[in-house]
Design a binder for these strands. Structure first.
Lengths: 144, 144
DNA sequence: GCATAAAATGCAATTGAGTTGCAATTGGCT
DNA sequence: AGCCAATTGCAACTCAATTGCATTTTATGC
């Protein structure tokens, strides 16, 4: 059984071609992907709606997480559990990085969102931290 | 001359009914607004396109700034210059707050985005920090 | 291995945000 | 008042995302 199928089984999700293929892509690609990007990466042709529903299902089951994107398009990335395992409930409290050169969005799994002090009366729940700039690869290319 | 007209004049923008009305709304409302919300708040009926172009113009001239929104819709808020005046160039480096109860997004002008240490090789430019939770008003109501 | 119910998929149609080109109008100026 | 450039309105379009419904597929028990 493929790695993806294994993950689906653990989550008690039905193992379907669409899900296995999409999950494979998420595991393979290290970046945060949009619906359209995944669609292009898929070899087999699935209906757009199926892909939307697959993403929703993965989201609900904690396989992927939403990634902030300023352009207004939804982005999703595979949840790297290695970094969060110890905390019990899965959390997405890491910083995300958008490269203005190559337009890739990546999870900085090791960098947690710093705590801030809100004004009196505000109660904090989740938060989103997106940093824009140049990724390792692009800043290196620029220096040469 | 109205407050809004004054602001437009200082920015060397033409004073048109659409601009004055939209700017009035931004000054009046303390929250970050979407295109659709502004459209509802407008008494006079302007074309959707006019509103989009008005927002673009205000954005380019630093009258409003983009506010992060997880749902993927663009939000804009009036730039409160009191807090940034001293820094010369206008900056939008404050934290934004989304209330999960009343769905309003507000600028926490006084709370600046904390600096973080990126991994080796990453170069930082701008960043976006959105905190979700309960605003003052809603957390107060809940406590009663 | 096969029947079955529930879940997943495909298709068609729809909504809503945002954009573009172009003609008509209006604001700021002398 | 009159000019020109900026602004507006209209029509048409793109793209992301959603919904209802009929069909197919999956997991499971026999």
């Amino acid at each position: 059984m493929s790695n993806a199928a294994e993950v689906l089984k653990n989550k008690k999700l039905r193992i379907t071609p669409a899900r296995v293929h999409v999950l494979d892509i998420f595991i393979r690609e290290a970046a945060a992907l949009t619906h359209a990007e995944i669609e292009k990466l898929l070899i087999d042709d699935f209906d757009r709606v199926t892909l939307y529903r697959t993403l929703t299902s993965f989201l609900e089951n904690g396989l992927i997480h939403k990634v902030p994107d300023e352009s207004g398009i939804q982005r999703f990335a595979y949840c790297n559990h290695e970094h969060h395992e110890h905390s019990g409930a899965h959390s997405h409290t890491h910083v995300h990085f958008f490269c203005m050169q190559c337009s890739k969005t990546t999870c900085l799994d090791d960098i947690l969102i710093p705590a801030i002090k809100l004004p009196e009366g505000f109660v904090q729940d989740e938060s989103v931290f997106l940093v824009k700039g140049l990724c390792r690869k692009c800043s290196k290319n620029k220096a040469e």
